[in-house]
Design a protein around this nucleic acid. Structure first.
Ligand SMILES: [Mn+2]
Ligand SMILES: [Mn+2]
Ligand SMILES: [Mn+2]
Ligand SMILES: [Mn+2]
Lengths: 218, 218
DNA sequence: ATATATTTTTAGACAAGACTAAAAATATAT
DNA sequence: ATATATTTTTAGTCTTGTCTAAAAATATAT
């Protein structure tokens, strides 16, 4: 039995582990989860006791095979629920995350499998993030940050790095969503802002924005 | 903020309160929730502190207006989720309860309203139980226990009192479901068992069974 | 290499929710 | 009316998950 709280820690370690080294620091987890380092240390020990994490004092933590599968299962549920909310229940992509945070902890094999089928086996969530399969495998899609595209190049928005409500609403306001074509008109050396063409409108976006939009060539 | 545990107690008091007097005893709650009387006393105090329950020591507990609304909201969510599971996700009526026990605690106004609309505003759950509206009102449908129907009378199954997996599977085996026509052929004085006609088959059911099936005349 | 800063762990406390055992209140039976 | 049985509450303990403050380990800078 994995508790709700343990699931949240597993998920945090899972996410932190794939952006950089597999070993994750106590402070990184604390920051991600908006909790205190001492709480993290306590929980890491419990995860290690349950064979969900590898832990060496002062050296950081990584997930075991079992822990990684448990984490991927939570992520799978989170993203499938997000698809349901957007596709069937009229949620917009900036409204789903909070509710999915709750739904991801519902325990029922049948429920998640039926949900998957009902949604026609989606491969991505409403933010362009891949949905792990039952074995925890995810389709690694090649995508780069908009900030890394050169002047005069065109690309297509395929995801967002920040999926906070604020950022997604900003994108809505500028009519940027998954599938939107973007052409880089010019880049400013000074502050790394860029002017882009979206739906034949020119808009200027800051480095922070271009650093949080994933695109593919085309 | 009402916690998950508080919601479960509210629901128990709500259910116990409508089958008999509105004031509910500590022991009755303990039995319903499979917990100890001392735990119930502790929780009742918390509910009273939050103005969700009226509590007089040694005299039992009842729900306040606010508590009744909170309880009805949990029941509403429970039953709407059960409808989703059966109508859209291929669950049978004996599989839904456990999962609905989890889903009923998800907090999101929008989610439950959209779910209601998506399901086309159902009035009953898969066991024939009425779904409270947003204000906590339920359509009181007149139904009687099968055990109370006289010999040679016909009736239609409109609900079940016991919705345990075991009982529902028993009904499945005998092809009794919501809407099934039942004619009482004979009643045994001795043990109050009865022989009934279901889909032109004669079956004998015990008092326990006839006491857990709701029917309407017709 | 040593002093300083940062990170991580430990120790001790707290709140929620549950339990056992004992005490107090209420109900029942003679 | 009094003794007995049942119900309910209290007192004290436990587990989970969190926190603060202090101690220990590790990293960084001169
Ligand atoms: Mn999300
Ligand atoms: Mn979560
Ligand atoms: Mn149910
Ligand atoms: Mn429940």
């Amino acid at each position: 039995m994995v508790t709700l709280s343990e699931e949240n820690y597993l998920k945090a370690i899972y996410h932190l582990g794939k952006q950089g080294s597999v070993v994750v620091s106590t402070n990184a987890i604390a920051e991600q989860m908006e909790t205190k380092a001492s709480s993290v240390t306590d929980m890491i020990k419990k995860l290690a006791d349950k064979n969900l994490a590898n832990y060496i004092k002062y050296q950081g933590v990584s997930l075991t095979k079992e822990g990684r599968l448990a984490a991927a299962s939570v992520v799978r549920k989170h993203r499938l629920w997000e698809v349901l909310l957007v596709e069937k229940l009229n949620f917009s992509w900036d409204e789903v995350h909070e509710v999915a945070e709750q739904l991801e902890h519902i325990k029922s094999e049948k429920l998640i499998n039926e949900l998957d089928a009902f949604l026609n086996y989606p491969e991505e969530d409403p933010h362009g993030d891949p949905i792990p399969d039952k074995e925890g495998n995810i389709k690694k899609v090649e995508k780069i940050l908009l900030s890394q595209v050169d002047e005069n190049q065109s690309c297509i928005c395929v995801g967002v790095k920040d999926s906070s409500t604020d950022f997604l609403k900003y994108l809505d306001k500028h009519h940027i969503s998954l599938g939107t074509s973007i052409k880089i008109i010019s880049k400013e050396k000074f502050d790394e802002s860029m002017t882009i063409n979206v739906n034949n409108a020119l808009i200027n976006i800051s480095k922070i924005v271009s650093n949080n939009i994933y695109v593919k060539k085309g």
